[in-house]
Every structure is written in structure tokens, then in C-alpha cells.
């Protein structure tokens, strides 16, 4: 036992012993704990309003049993339901940090970040053939355009972290100040609609330009100038929420 006289070697051996104890302990108790949590999860999710589509997978990204669940299937739900489901799963005794498969986990993963300008092209492709229409002289989005807004929200979803400018434009008819106000109201309405569909609010800026920026090649009085434009301004790196703050993303 002479070699144990050296303190550093003894300490290192002690650490190795700790590691082996943890590995063996984890091998025996880990799957049981994860299974126990996974058993309680579906009832809790259903109670919180997540239905049967949302599933909690108690596995780490590398496949080991974990007490931090990955929640899948939350795409069709709205933000408040997602938040409620996240809080409910977090409240299971023993469960840890919630990750959503379509939320911040995308940012932390090693997958290549999508080029944000690509998002702008997607949205412009959508809006080329169809416009977001409003009711006469008001900022209420009319019913058929709601589906288009949902598609725009879908196209903007991968642009987490991008700052998107929503600009409302009108044609020249009527007083200038009223046009600016109306175009701003409409841009704000689109902004609210997108927020309701899950795009983070601090990434959306709305403004109204009235008839000051007509489409290139068109006269300002042309009614085709009445439109909503989206522009991706910049990307801010997303700060993922810490593991122990269960949220909608």
C-alpha cells in the first residue's frame, strides 16, 4: 500500500472510484427513474390541455435516460397551452428542465443555422400570388387572409432570432396622415396576428408608410400599392431560456 502514501494518487483514485460508483448507480437506477417519470407524463399533459399529440421523452440528446424531458408534438398548440403543458410537466416530482423539439432546442443543437434571408424569400414567395386583405378602411384582417397569415407564421418560424419589419403601405387616395395611420394600424394588426401564432413579439417591428413608398414601376395612385411588406432586418443570436424556466419554447 506504499503507493497510497502519495496524496495526489490517492485523490485521483478516489475520484475514479466516485465515477465508477456513479456509472454503476446510474446504470441501475437511471432507466427506472426515467420510466417512472414517463409513466406520469401523459396524464399530466392531457390535464394541462396538450391532448394526446404532445409526448414527453425522458432521454438526453445522446440517448441516455434523463430526468429532463424533450416535448414533441406541440406545433399545433398555441403559446398559452404550450406554457401550461411545460409548467405541468415540470411540476412532476423529479422532472427537470423542459425542452421543446421545435423551440430553443433547435438553437442549441449543432445543426447549421438557417440563413435568415432565406426566410424573407419564403415569405415573399407566399405573398407574390396572394395579399393579406383587410376590411374596407379598417385594420381588421378579413377571414380568407387568416389562412395566409398562418402560412406566413409558418414560414417565419425557423427565423428565430431574426428581427422582422412589417410595413404597411396604402395607395394615394385620401389624406396623407390618415393613410399613414391606417397603414400603421394594419401593420400592427398583422404583427398581433403573427404573435398569436407563435412568432416572438420582440422580433417584430410594425410601421406604416402610407403612400410614400409605392411599388417600383407603379404610380402612387395605383390600388395595387395597398400591401403589407415583410423584411428581415437583422439576426440577433437567441438566448435559450435556462433549463429550469419551463416556457412555451
Amino acid at each position: 500500500m506504499q503507493f497510497l502514501r502519495s496524496p495526489y494518487l490517492a485523490i485521483a483514485l478516489g475520484a475514479l472510484l466516485v465515477f465508477m460508483l456513479a456509472a454503476i448507480g446510474g446504470r441501475f437506477t437511471g432507466p427506472g427513474l426515467a420510466a417512472q417519470l414517463a409513466q406520469q407524463a401523459p396524464a399530466v399533459i392531457e390535464k394541462a390541455g396538450g391532448g394526446t399529440r404532445v409526448e414527453a421523452h425522458f432521454r438526453s440528446p445522446s440517448g441516455w435516460p434523463s430526468r429532463h424531458p424533450l416535448l414533441t408534438g406541440g406545433e399545433p398548440l398555441d403559446e398559452t397551452t404550450r406554457q401550461a403543458v411545460a409548467l405541468a410537466v415540470n411540476a412532476i416530482p423529479g422532472a427537470g428542465g423542459i425542452r421543446w423539439s421545435d423551440g430553443d432546442a433547435l438553437v442549441e443543437a449543432d445543426e447549421a443555422r438557417l440563413n435568415p434571408l432565406h426566410c424573407q424569400e419564403d415569405v415573399q414567395a407566399l405573398l407574390r400570388a396572394r395579399t393579406i386583405r383587410f376590411e374596407e378602411s379598417s385594420a381588421r384582417i378579413d377571414k380568407p387572409s387568416r389562412a395566409l397569415i398562418a402560412e406566413v407564421a409558418q414560414a417565419l418560424r425557423p427565423c428565430l432570432g431574426a428581427i422582422i419589419a412589417i410595413t404597411g403601405h396604402t395607395d394615394k387616395s385620401g389624406p396623407d396622415a390618415a393613410n399613414i395611420a391606417l397603414s400603421r394600424e394594419r401593420a400592427l394588426a398583422v404583427r398581433q396576428a403573427l404573435i398569436a401564432r407563435g412568432i416572438p413579439a420582440d422580433g417584430l417591428r410594425a410601421e406604416g408608410k402610407g403612400s410614400h413608398e409605392p411599388v417600383e414601376g407603379l404610380l402612387p395612385s395605383d390600388p395595387a400599392n395597398r400591401r403589407i411588406e415583410f423584411e428581415v432586418l437583422a439576426t440577433e443570436p437567441i438566448k435559450p431560456t435556462p433549463v429550469d424556466t419551463p416556457s412555451a419554447r
Binding site: 485523490i11 466516485v18 456513479a22 448507480g25 427513474l33
Partner: peptide
């Protein structure tokens, strides 16, 4: 984090604390 990794971190912290306390006692008595 996998469960075994969390166990390892906790046990390592306990080990380090134990070492520190043990060393303090040893230093006192010598």
C-alpha cells in the same frame, strides 16, 4: 443531462467536500 452524469456531478461534489473537511481536520491535528 443524463441521470448517471447528474449522479456523478453530485457525488464528485460530495467527494470534494469530504476531502476538504478531512484535510482541514488533518491539518488541525498536525
Amino acid at each position: 443531462m443524463p441521470i448517471w452524469m447528474e449522479l456523478f456531478v453530485l457525488m464528485l461534489i460530495a467527494y470534494a467536500l469530504g476531502l476538504a473537511i478531512g484535510w482541514a481536520i488533518w491539518a488541525r491535528e498536525n
